[in-house]
Simulated assay, not measured.
Amino acid sequence: MMKYLILLSAIFFVSEFVLMVFKRSQKEHTLKKSDRGSMALLWITISLGFTFGFIFANYYIWKLANYVVAGVGLLLIIVGVIIRWLSIFQLKQSFTVNVVIATNHQLKTDGLYGYVRHPSYLGLLLIMIGFALAMNTFSSFLIISVSMLLAVLYRIRVEEQALKSEFKEKYESYSKKVKMLIPWIW
């Protein structure tokens, strides 16, 4: 089971790397940059989270409960990938891996963005929590999920400051209606 999880994590890592290479903002289309190191923090957190998560993962004794937990983890990974990529496709050209305001930037408030303000980060968190569960140890779960949540919350704060600065009252109104990460809750 663990070898498949390692393979799946490598595929995830490659997909995120491809996003980083091809979906960086272009300087000629950038109005304001305000990433403040959040992309680097996400990469470091993902890399270290996987490294230490796999170090502490359960490779040996698996019972039915372990397979159930791993199955739930795999389900979360699948749901997270769907949410993440759907949110990226819905943003189209506006999606970038670094936090910028483009010259033609429009505030997206429909589709998944009508349910949560940051569906891409929700998907990323679900993916990472799924991997953490599938590793089948409490240590791996804590290492990955807590560090990733903190990194994503920092990234959201950076992004929201940029959006508030650009869209002012329109973003304030949107953020009062639509929750940050969990529909109708948070």
Rank of each mutant, 00 (worst) to 15 (best):
I129W: 04
M148S: 11
Q106D: 03
S140P: 03
L133P: 13
L150R: 15
L153V: 02
G111E: 14
T109V: 14
L142V: 01
L153Y: 00
G111C: 14
I144S: 09
L149M: 12
R155H: 03
G130V: 04
Q93F: 06
Y113W: 06
A151T: 09
N98M: 10
G111I: 03
L150G: 14
V100H: 03
R157F: 10
M135T: 02
S145K: 13
L153Q: 07
Q93Y: 08
A102R: 15
V152L: 14
I144W: 15
Y113K: 07
I127Q: 15
L124R: 05
Q106M: 08
L112F: 10
M135I: 02
T137P: 05
I144V: 13
I143T: 10
F138V: 06
I144F: 15
N98D: 15
L150W: 04
Y121M: 09
L149A: 08
F95K: 14
I129N: 06
K92L: 08
L112E: 02
G123K: 06
G114S: 12
K108Y: 02
L107H: 11
T109D: 10
F131N: 03
Y113P: 09
A132L: 12
F141V: 01
I144L: 14
L124W: 00
L150Q: 12
F95M: 14
V116F: 13
N98R: 11
L107P: 12
T109Y: 07
S94W: 11
Q93M: 03
F138A: 01
T96F: 03
S120V: 03
I127P: 06
L133C: 07
L133K: 11
R157Y: 11
S145N: 07
R155L: 04
T103W: 04
L142C: 14
Q106C: 04
L153N: 09
N104R: 11
I129Y: 01
T103V: 06
Y113C: 07
L133Q: 10
D110K: 10
Y115P: 09
T109K: 15
N136H: 02
Y113E: 04
Y121D: 00
L126E: 00
G111S: 14
A134E: 00
F138K: 03
L126S: 01
T137V: 09
V99A: 15
F131M: 09
L124C: 03
K108E: 12
H105Y: 01
L150C: 14
M148P: 03
H118D: 07
S94D: 09
R117P: 05
A102Q: 15
S147T: 14
L124D: 00
L124M: 14
Y115E: 05
R155K: 15
Q93P: 02
V146K: 13
G111P: 15
N104T: 12
Y121Q: 08
S140C: 02
L149C: 09
R155D: 02
L124V: 00
V116A: 05
I129T: 12
S147G: 08
V146A: 13
M128P: 05
I101A: 09
S120G: 12
V97Q: 04
V146C: 12
N104P: 05
V99M: 08
M135G: 02
S145V: 10
L125Q: 13
V97I: 13
N104H: 15
